[in-house]
């Protein structure tokens, strides 16, 4: 019996030591930045924005602030925030669909902050009181699996209308709009901007076998060939880099888009660190880093577009009133549930 206790104590002790040493190892020497006194603190983030570990690592290099994060779609974050009722477990919310941010704002869950860097962000990409600020523009694209298209004997679809092709039955993947901002804006854009409205959605629903429960699933599925078309928030460079036979298509008859925001959570434990992050995101350096890891149209003026989204200049962008989209969220989702019909 004493043996057991001794063993367990040793085990716990070693884990504790390991834990401490890993903490010590990860606190780097503070860089010479304006926020020197924040170095060594921790920021907790909810995020949905590409290779988060690499992005946050850059932030840590710059400011010395370590970021612990959870990769969650914006719909999930909204739910969590609502559950936490003003005592959030995170400090910062980064990326995803602005619809959820708007809903959160009206629920009083966000902390306003107007970053000095925000002056460089056009008005339509940010909330006027600073409750959220767009970091980049998320654009809905199709990620199309070339090989699957060949197998199905169809050309690569180029528009929303093309997606109604009967050969694509069961081949189009989209996330659940309740969970994913991408899906929500796709839905909103389709019913408001195109002439087709809810009926289109009903027809498209036929070609969608199931709504993905997680935001990043559609492009992933299309890439590995489990589906042919994935409705994606980006050009999915990472997936392509892994070698999958996929191409990005900007839908010709209308590309939904929205600003992908960053916001500070009300009741955050590290508000200074949070502000530092917002500043960094919107700074020239930060914008370039973000662009490097997740190629999107930057929100900040004066930053060049990454090559892969050059195509956007000729694409037809949908006209979406984000605020309204955010406010109507619950109603739209309810209607959607009826359309998809279980």
């Amino acid at each position: 019996m004493k043996k057991i206790i001794a063993l367990l104590l040793i085990a716990m002790f070693s884990i504790a030591v390991l834990g401490c040493s890993r903490q010590a190892a990860k606190s780097p020497a503070p860089e010479q930045t304006a926020k020197k006194n924040l170095a060594g603190t921790t920021l907790k983030a909810y995020a949905a924005y590409g290779p988060l570990d690499k992005i946050f690592a850059e932030f840590q290099k710059e400011t010395g602030i370590k970021v612990e994060f959870l990769d969650m779609s914006s719909g999930e974050v909204l739910s969590k925030l609502r559950a936490e009722k003003g005592k959030p477990t995170g400090d910062i919310w980064f990326g995803g669909g602005v619809d959820s941010f708007i809903a959160a704002q009206s629920d009083g869950l966000l902390e306003p902050y107007i970053s000095p860097e925000a002056a460089k962000v056009p008005a339509q990409y940010k909330e006027k009181d600073g409750y959220w600020t767009g970091v980049s523009l998320a654009i809905v694209t199709f990620l199309v699996n070339k090989d699957r298209c060949k197998e199905l004997g169809i050309p690569v679809p180029e528009s929303w209308a093309d997606l109604l092709n009967p050969k694509l039955k069961g081949e189009v993947v989209m996330s659940d709009p309740a969970v994913s901002g991408t899906a929500y804006f796709t839905l909103y854009g389709l019913i408001k901007d195109t002439a087709q409205g809810w009926p289109y959605m009903g027809k498209l629903n036929v070609n969608i076998p199931a709504y993905a429960k997680r935001g990043g699933e559609p492009p992933q599925k299309a890439a590995i060939g489990e589906a042919t078309v994935g409705i994606s928030p980006d050009t999915s460079e990472e997936l392509k880099a892994q070698g999958y036979p996929a191409v990005t298509v900007f839908p010709k008859d209308g590309t939904p888009w929205w600003p992908s925001p960053v916001a500070i959570l009300k009741g955050s434990q590290n508000p200074d660190g949070a502000k530092a992050f917002v500043d960094w995101c919107l700074s020239e350096k930060g914008q370039n880093i973000l662009k490097q890891y997740t190629p999107r149209v930057p929100a900040r003026e004066g930053i060049a577009y990454p090559a892969v989204v050059e195509g956007i200049k000729s694409a037809k962008m949908m006209n979406i009133d984000f605020i309204q989209a955010g406010n109507e969220r619950d109603a739209i989702l309810a209607q959607f549930q009826k359309i998809r019909g279980k």
């Binding site: 921790t42 907790k44 959870l70 990769d71 477990t89 995170g90 997680r214 935001g215 699933e217 992933q220």
Partner: peptide, 19 residues
Amino acid sequence: ISPGSKLATVELFEFVKIG
């Protein structure tokens, strides 16, 4: 779980999510 208390299985779930 919260950002500060993420566990291995959740990390796994995240990897699967991202693909």
